[in-house]
Amino acid sequence: MYAEGAPCWVDAELPDVEAGKRFYGELFGWTFEEAFGSSVWARLDGDLVASLAPKTDGRMPTVWTVSFATPDAAALGRRITAAGGQVVMAPFPVAGLGVAALATDPDGAVFGLWQAGTHPGFERRYEPGTFVWAELYTRDTAAANTFYGELFHEALFGSGAEPDFGRADVSEVFPAEMPPHFLTHFRVTDLDDTVGAVQRLGGRVQVPPFETSYGRVAVVTDNQGASFAVLRR
């Protein structure tokens, strides 16, 4: 089980799940199987690493969403509201796998909550082809540090804690008008080759490779417009 505040899962909401399977299967070597509803599990060498789901409303964005672990999604939702955030989708059960919710921080960045049932979250991470980092791009990093520090103090600052999400000013990488958001990072062995593969598979480069404190990164979109980052450490 993941400690409260640890990124424990990522999922993509896509217009066309079959197209997503082709793109990510080729890019990361993922295989897929039916999950719940019309969603599919993504596996790497048999281990669960992500999920893809069809968008239920065409007006919703095509996105990757990172979810943070919690033992009690309802209680965490109340703390989020008290700290100035919002719960935009109240906790709901997911096919016996756990309880999910969707929230925003005070600046509007969206993130998920996951209260594990039979599905604890990632079975593999930090390796090539899997989740490695989530970066919050925000307009007020000091306020973000206060908000997330209050919610997830132990995961961020506890003894021996190794945070796997960070905070940066949105204008450091993106245009100032870009809304605050979490950017899911997947680890790769060769950044330039991966960027080339993204383009060959119908995706595009949003931000060419650049250096960060946690590795060399490029921001890309898949063949349906969902943004994510690839990271070489």
Rank of each mutant, 00 (worst) to 15 (best):
P93S: 10
D72V: 06
L156G: 02
F182M: 13
T70I: 09
T70H: 04
G215E: 10
F228H: 13
W41G: 05
G46K: 13
Y126M: 15
P209E: 04
T130L: 09
Y2P: 09
G85Q: 09
L27D: 06
A168R: 11
P91D: 05
V49H: 12
A101I: 11
E13D: 15
L14N: 05
C8Q: 03
L76D: 03
I80H: 09
D107M: 13
A176W: 08
G25M: 01
G149I: 05
Q224Y: 02
R204M: 10
T130I: 09
R22C: 02
F228P: 01
P54Q: 09
E26L: 05
C8H: 05
Y24N: 01
S227D: 11
V220Q: 01
V132I: 11
G158A: 09
T221A: 12
A12I: 05
A53C: 08
V219R: 00
F131G: 00
G202V: 12
A12W: 00
R79Y: 05
L76W: 05
F165H: 10
F32K: 03
A6W: 02
A53T: 08
G121I: 06
V219H: 04
D193Q: 15
F131H: 13
N223W: 04
T118S: 15
F210K: 09
E33V: 02
Y148M: 07
G20R: 02
G149H: 09
R79Q: 12
E150R: 15
A101E: 02
D193F: 04
T70R: 04
L27W: 04
L136S: 06
V217N: 06
W41I: 09
G129T: 01
D72K: 06
G160Y: 07
T138N: 01
G96K: 08
G117S: 10
D192A: 15
A35V: 03
A73F: 07
R232E: 13
I80A: 07
G25D: 01
A53Q: 12
T212F: 10
P106V: 13
A6F: 08
T81D: 07
A75T: 11
Q115S: 02
A168N: 09
L151R: 03
Y126E: 15
A35I: 01
P7Y: 08
S38G: 11
E4M: 14
D105V: 15
G203M: 07
A229K: 08
A74P: 00
F92M: 14
E4R: 14
A161H: 08
T65S: 13
R187T: 14
D105A: 12
V110T: 14
A143L: 12
G202F: 01
V219T: 03
G25T: 06
G129I: 02
A144Y: 04
S51E: 00
L48S: 14
S38R: 12
E33C: 10
C8G: 06
P54T: 11
L136E: 03
A82E: 15
A82V: 03
F68K: 08
V207K: 09
G166P: 00
T221V: 15
W41C: 06
L156N: 05
R232I: 07
R79L: 05
Y126F: 14
R232V: 14
A3W: 00
A6E: 14
G37P: 01
W41S: 06
A75H: 06
M1S: 12
T141D: 02
S213W: 11
V110C: 02
N223I: 08
F111R: 00
F228S: 11
